[in-house]
Structures are given as structure tokens and as C-alpha cells.
């Protein structure tokens, strides 16, 4: 049974989304969303990172390879970085990476980026809603996933 068949068998499929949130803004933003009892889709798995600058392209690609249907990287707004410039450098890297991924054929909307501050609980919930919806619309990820024995070697 290959992955396509598995997918078609799963009814009510829900996407799995990996979110890399920076410790100082977006993670606190997520916290605020929780404290404020704002509802948002439960599809994200959060990984806390010290800064969006810590997010190596490896993280994003590895998530996709391991079968994540979507990835979100979120950090402080430009100018608000706890380490002053971490997110500025990250922004350039993400731009290049996103362009490469979309160029080779990863659908737009699989890999997402956002700036969410610690005061933006509402925005965090909206971002998660948007990302979940866009990934749902794309369906289960099929590209870049490592498929063990998929070729029956």
C-alpha cells in the first residue's frame, strides 16, 4: 500500500503542521492566545526556538521530509528582535529558501512565515487559522516525503 492509497483511506484527514516559534515574541503570542481563551485549530505542533534566526533551512526541509503537511516559522516583527537583528538575517534566508522550494514544485502555502509579537494573541490565532486552511486546501503533502520501501527494492 503506498502513501496515496493510505491518504485516500483516511477520512476526515487533518493536516499536521509544525510551527517554529521564537521564544520572545511568537511563543509568547501563542501563550497569550491560550490565556485569552482564543479558539484556533489544533493542527499545529509547536517547537520553541530561541529566535527565528535559529531556524535553519534544515528544520523546515526535515519537517517536510518527515511528513509534515505544512510548516510555519514565526518570529518577532522586524526591529523587535530580542537579539536585535536575528530576524533580519533570517528573513533573507527564508526568502531564498521559499523561492527554491516553490521553484522545484513544493506548493505555495506549505511553508509559511509570519511575524507575531507577544501582544498579538489574536493575530497568532488568525495566522494559525489561515495556515491550517491553506494547508487543508492543498491536501496531504506528497512531495519530499521519505517513503520507505516505496519502490520495493
Amino acid at each position: 500500500m503506498n502513501l496515496d492509497e493510505v491518504d485516500s483511506k483516511i477520512e476526515n484527514w487533518e493536516p499536521k503542521i509544525i510551527a517554529f516559534l521564537c521564544n520572545w515574541c511568537s511563543y509568547a503570542g501563542a501563550d497569550l492566545a491560550g490565556i485569552s481563551r482564543i479558539q484556533y485549530p489544533p493542527n499545529v505542533r509547536v517547537i520553541r526556538v530561541p529566535c527565528s534566526g535559529r531556524v535553519d533551512p534544515f528544520f523546515i526541509i526535515k519537517s517536510l521530509q518527515a511528513g509534515a503537511d505544512g510548516v510555519l516559522v514565526s518570529g518577532c516583527h522586524p526591529g523587535d528582535c530580542h537579539y536585535l537583528t536575528g530576524n533580519y538575517f533570517a528573513r533573507r534566508r527564508f526568502t531564498i529558501l521559499k523561492n527554491i522550494l516553490e521553484y522545484i514544485g513544493i506548493e505555495e502555502g506549505r511553508v509559511n512565515f509570519s511575524w507575531v509579537s507577544a501582544a498579538e494573541g489574536e493575530k497568532f490565532a488568525t495566522v494559525i487559522k489561515e495556515v491550517t486552511e491553506s494547508v487543508k486546501a492543498l491536501g496531504p503533502a506528497k512531495r519530499l516525503i521519505k517513503r520507505f520501501n516505496y519502490r520495493k527494492l
Binding site: 534544515f58 526541509i61 526535515k62 521530509q65 531564498i96 519530499l144 516525503i145 517513503r147 516505496y150
Partner: peptide, 24 residues
């Protein structure tokens, strides 16, 4: 070990994606 060294499609593709990313 971040990425596999197999000839799995994804492993091969990822090697090339990251190689090219490093040339940016």
C-alpha cells in the same frame, strides 16, 4: 545525521535543494 544518504527520491532531492541553497 540530518538527511539520509539513500537514493530515495526525497533524500536525493533534498541534497540538491540544500546544496543549491548553500550557493546563494
Amino acid at each position: 545525521q540530518w538527511f539520509g544518504r539513500s537514493i530515495d527520491e526525497s533524500d536525493r532531492m533534498i541534497f540538491h535543494i540544500i546544496r543549491v541553497f548553500h550557493t546563494a
